[in-house]
């Protein structure tokens, strides 16, 4: 079966430094792929490159058979490759519902003119109510991001990504700063996505979460893939343990 997301030999250089080097990852529709590695291993840069936020990335990025590497970030998102940010980055001026609507609505060239005359046209896409239902944020939709707790903001970040009708979501540290209870709920949500036909690439530091919800894990260190395998294989992998705890580990 062809992978949903096919990354082949992805590379990013910053002033002579190879931040991401020859990274290849395949994510399948029905599986959650974890991407882990110590601080500075190049995980966020990899996500940035996949989503088009790094101007000079090399390599092949293919989503459901469609080549994306020459598209700007917003077109990749419209094509179904939607990400979240480590620092959440919600739109503070908008309510939660509006945050979702903005991600769901695709404007036409005449939308501005129409909006000036008739702002309350029915624009709310089904994906918005789906995303609200999946993430169970019904109580929050009329609040603004600043009125939410950190954990709630994280969940809304995921909800906004889902509102964009993604084929695959890239979650950049969605559990950072969540308490164990919130992390559990997030884990359930992530694990449920493949059943709805949404692929997941998950970056996180919370190993309990990653080992729990991921079907496969790719480990990066110094911008290169040092291991790929099931959670069980990764837990026992000496190279991975060395990368995390230092080479002096016996």
């Amino acid at each position: 079966m062809n992978p949903l997301l096919h990354i082949h030999q992805l590379g990013v250089s910053y002033g002579g430094l190879r931040a991401v080097d020859d990274v290849s990852i395949d994510v399948h529709t029905d599986r959650v792929m974890g991407l882990i590695g110590p601080n500075g291993a190049g995980k966020t840069t990899t996500i940035d490159a996949i989503c088009g936020f790094v101007p000079k990335a090399t390599g092949i990025i293919e989503l459901a058979g469609r080549r994306l590497e020459s598209l700007p970030p917003h077109s990749r998102a419209r094509a179904g490759l939607v990400r979240t940010f480590q620092s959440v980055e919600l739109f503070d001026d908008l309510t939660i519902r509006e945050n979702l609507i903005v991600a769901a609505s695709a404007p036409r060239w005449y939308s501005t003119m129409l909006d000036a005359i008739h702002p309350n046209r029915r624009v709310t896409a089904e994906s918005v109510s789906d995303a609200i239902e999946m993430t169970k944020i019904n109580d929050l939709i009329d609040l603004r991001p600043k009125q939410l707790s950190h954990g709630q903001r994280r969940i809304v970040g995921v909800a906004r990504a889902l509102a964009g009708k993604p084929k695959l979501v890239l979650l950049d540290e969605p559990a950072a700063g969540l308490d164990p209870d919130e992390t559990d709920k997030l884990g359930e949500l992530i694990a449920s996505l493949p059943k709805r036909g949404i692929g997941v690439l998950l970056v996180d530091h919370d190993m309990t979460l990653v080992l729990d919800v991921c079907d496969d894990i790719t480990v990066l260190d110094f911008g290169r893939v040092i291991a790929t395998g099931t959670p069980q294989e990764i837990r026992g992998n000496q190279a991975v343990i060395a990368a995390y705890l230092g080479s002096a580990h016996e």
């Binding site: 989503c51 088009g52 936020f53 700007p72 970030p73 917003h74 998102a77 419209r78 939607v82 990400r83 979240t84 940010f85 980055e89 919600l90 739109f91 503070d92 001026d93 908008l94 509006e98 945050n99 609507i101 903005v102 991600a103 609505s105 695709a106 404007p107 939308s111 501005t112 909006d115 000036a116 005359i117 008739h118 702002p119 309350n120 046209r121 624009v123 906004r160 990504a161 964009g164």
Partner: peptide, 25 residues
């Protein structure tokens, strides 16, 4: 009207965070 419509929401989204706006399509 524009301010309340999707156009206005997109304006405020871009104003608030261009990177996140691009990521939201």
């Amino acid at each position: 009207n524009l301010r309340r419509s999707p156009t206005g929401l997109r304006w405020l989204a871009v104003r608030g965070n261009e990177r996140a706006a691009a990521a939201a399509g």
